[in-house]
Design a binder for these strands. Sequence first.
RNA 1: GGAGAGGUCGCUUAGCGGUCUAGAGCGGAUGUCUUGAAAACAUCUAAGAAUGAAAGUUCUUCGCGAGUUCGAAUCUCGCCCUCUCCGCCA
Length: 428
Amino acid sequence: MIDINLIRNNPKDIQKAAKNKNIDINVDHILGIDKKYKELSLVVQKLREERNVLTDSMKGEPSKEQIEKGKILKEKLEKEDHALKAVWEELKEKLYQIPNLPLKTVPIGDSSKFKIIKKVGMPKKFSFIPKDHLEIGEGLDIIDVKRGAKVSGTRFAYLKNEGALLELALIQFAMDRLIKEGFSPIFPPMLIRHEITEELGYWNAENSNNYYSVNNYEEPPFYLIGTAEHAIVPMHKDEIFEEKDLPKRYVGFSSAFRREAGTYGKDTRGILRVHQFDKVEMVSFVKPQNEEKERKKILFVAESFMQDLGLPYQITQLASGDLAFPSAETIDIETWMPSQNKYRETHSISTTTDFQSRRLNIKYNVNGEKKFVHILNGTAFAIGRTIISILENYQKSDGSVLIPKILQKYLPAGKAGLHFEKISPKKV
RNA sequence: GGAGAGGUCGCUUAGCGGUCUAGAGCGGAUGUCUUGAAAACAUCUAAGAAUGAAAGUUCUUCGCGAGUUCGAAUCUCGCCCUCUCCGCCA
């Protein structure tokens, strides 16, 4: 949620920012409702004051006149109070439709206006025509989308054998590093309540069909998280941090569930875009003045993972039109995918400034003054896409794959014919 | 899933229609005393909003919402959550 005072004082900026995010709001209209709301609340407050004065004046049995007066007051108050509530609902709905404002540094425009910040590593030249991850994965019997489709439908897959072990290795690798960086490891719940989804700011209007709801019979439905962030950020809802406890950092592991509505026909092959994937995710709660520093830290760690894995990548800054509703800035890491001959998103690092903390009421205490924290999130590993990058970038002509050295210590010692320095193709 | 108990200021709790501007204890902060500390004593110790230069004043919030009433922490209903016992279960 945007600070209402920000809207009152800079209506033009808000209008422009929403436009840059391709979100249609009418700030003047909202200000009109806000004015009505302020006037009405004043009326209601006055009436309540009158009522309080009246009740304070009667200590024992009230007189007939007093009761009469009270009745009249009560009626008036009820009427005005209802009107006030209605206006508030209207205002709240409008306020919830206002997206977070992009930072000044964010390029304005649609998705084509993204900025490439830097490139690291050179795409490898292959002496043979590189296969894509699905061909490699099926050859090694570590990815199975056919059976995924049989059991769950399109865009579902099984990760098997060394593929499964590779996932565990990546999780452990990321966790180890991030724990050293001051992140608390956490396995969050993957079903969340509806009210939480609203407060996070992802389930608004046009985005509402991106996530799954889960039937809970007589109870209100749950939502399946789209990323660990959805369950970790609201952990501290309605809480006040002590200044000394910030920054508060979490590294969470969870599955992520996405309906991928509107992506029919896009990235249908393999496991690049699936309805369920696992992810190691970073979340930080920081003081506003430390936000910049934290963003750099999260990006730095994410980059270091890719460097350690020896994968070529580029860093891009998303344009305003591409930012998620609560994001003020998003930096992506795109990793080289030889089969597509291009970089594809594997990491996304966003700052939501105080947007989520306002909705969720998460503050910190500075010498008695309560201020909203800033919240950042970033991918450590989107496991599926990382596995794709490893398979494709480290493939050999015989269909086997050399696994980056750094992961070796996280893979169990070879037995039963498994060789972890490389994954060998299945003998047919 | 069945039965019961309960959600009040950081923690433990009092409160059972007007005396609640919510009391007490613990914890915390500051001060007095002390070489320093402890103890003791004193004061302070929830959040949000309106107005105001400020001091202050007022309003809201006793899990959330609706209702009864001149008046609700207190009564009624619905919802959310927690705990205990039983059942089921990895």
